[in-house]
Computed example of a mutant assay.
Amino acid sequence: MSEELEGKHGVQSLEVGMGILKAMVFGKRSMMLKDIAAAADMPPSKAHRYLVSLIRSGLVEQDPLTSRYNLGPFALNIGLVAIDRLDRIRLGLTAISELRDAVNETTALAVWGDNGPVIVRWERPRRPITVNVVTGTTLGLLSSAVGRVFGAWLPPAQIKSILRRELDTRKNLPPGVETQEDAEALLAEVRNQGIAVISGNYMFRGVEAVAAPVFNFKNELTMSIVLVGVEGSIDMSAESPVIARLKDAAHSLSQRLGSTREAPGPC
C-alpha cells in the first residue's frame, strides 16, 4: 500500500480506540466494561483489549476497588492544554460571520461584563436598510434579548444586583414586568424556549432581536449570539428557518467550546 493511500485510510485501530474514549466522555461518569462496550458498539473482549492499551498510555485509568474505568491523567492534560489554547472570542467571531452570511441579518456576539452583557463584535448584512450595533455597548438585562439570555442562564447571585437595579429604576422594563417574581417568570420562559425573542416593545422602536446562549466545556453560559433586524424583517415564528439557523450556530459553537448539552428543540 502506498504512503498516500495509507494516509487517506488512516489507522483503524486508533479510530476504534478514539471511539472508546468518546463513549467514556459522553458517559459523563466512571463506567463498567460492559457499559463502555455497549456505548462503543463492540464486544466486551475487544473493548477490554483497547482499554489495556489506553491505560498504558495514561488516557484511561481503572479503579481497583470498583473495576470501573475513567479518563486518565494524560486525557486530563490534553483537555487542559486544549482549553488553554482555545480562543472563545475568535471562534465566536467566526460563528457570527458565518451566520450573517447564511441569514443576511445583522449578527452580534456578546459576553458578560462588569455591568451586564457587552457587545464585542457585530457583522453587517448585505441589506440597504440595516440595524447598526455599537461595539462596547452594555445591554439591559430585561430589556434586551441578549440580556435575557444572560439573565436566564447565569447563576442568580451573579445577576442579582443588576436585576434589582433595573427593577428599582424601572427603566425600559418589559410590559408586565413589575416585580422580582415577574422578572423570574420572564427568564424562566427564556430557559424553557431556549432563546430570547423580542419583537415589538423593544428598547429601540422599530427594532427586533433574537438571542441564543453559548455554553463552555463546563456547560456554563459563556457568550450569546444575537440576530438584530428592522421590525418585521425576521421571521419570529416557531418554524422560522432563521431562528433555526441561530440555534444551530449557537449549539455548534457550544460544542466547539466543549459543551455536552443537547441541541435545543424547536420553539
Rank of each mutant, 00 (worst) to 15 (best):
P241Q: 12
V228C: 06
S233D: 09
A196N: 12
L221P: 10
Y202N: 15
V197I: 15
E231L: 04
A196G: 12
Y202H: 15
F204P: 00
P213Y: 00
S237W: 11
S240M: 12
D235V: 09
V230G: 06
V214I: 09
T222D: 10
L227Y: 02
K218F: 07
A196S: 15
A211F: 01
F217R: 10
L221Q: 09
S233T: 10
A212V: 00
K218I: 01
V230K: 09
M203E: 13
V207T: 12
E239F: 12
I234F: 01
L227G: 08
S199I: 08
G200C: 06
E220C: 11
V210C: 12
S233W: 00
F215C: 02
I198L: 13
G206Y: 07
M223P: 06
V226Q: 08
A209Y: 01
T222H: 06
S240I: 12
V228H: 06
M223Q: 13
M236N: 10
T222P: 06
V230H: 06
I243C: 10
S240H: 12
E220Y: 05
F217A: 09
A209I: 00
V242H: 06
V210N: 04
M203P: 00
A238C: 06
E239S: 14
N219W: 02
M236A: 03
I243K: 08
L227N: 11
A212P: 05
I198R: 09
E231M: 04
N216F: 04
S240T: 15
V230D: 07
A209S: 15
L227F: 01
S240V: 14
A209N: 11
G229N: 09
A212W: 04
E220D: 15
A211V: 05
V214C: 01
V207F: 01
F215T: 05
S224P: 10
V214G: 02
E239D: 14
G206C: 08
I225F: 06
E208M: 14
F217N: 10
G232W: 07
E220G: 13
P213G: 07
M236S: 02
V214E: 04
K218N: 15
A212M: 01
A244R: 14
I243R: 13
Y202L: 00
S240D: 12
E220Q: 13
Y202T: 04
I225T: 10
R205P: 07
V214A: 03
A209E: 14
A209V: 00
V242G: 04
V242N: 05
A212L: 00
S199T: 15
V197Q: 14
L227E: 08
V214W: 02
L227M: 12
A211R: 05
V226E: 13
E208R: 06
V228P: 05
I225P: 05
S233L: 02
V226N: 14
F204K: 13
V242W: 00
V228N: 10
N219S: 15
L221I: 15
N201M: 01
I225G: 03
K218A: 13
F215G: 02
T222Y: 05
V210E: 03
V214P: 04
V230S: 08
E231P: 02
V228W: 02
V226G: 06
F217G: 02
N201H: 14
I198E: 05
N219V: 05
A238R: 14
V207D: 10
N216Q: 09
R205G: 11
A244S: 13
A211N: 09
A209L: 00
G232F: 03
L221N: 07
R205Q: 13
G232S: 04
V207H: 07
V210F: 05
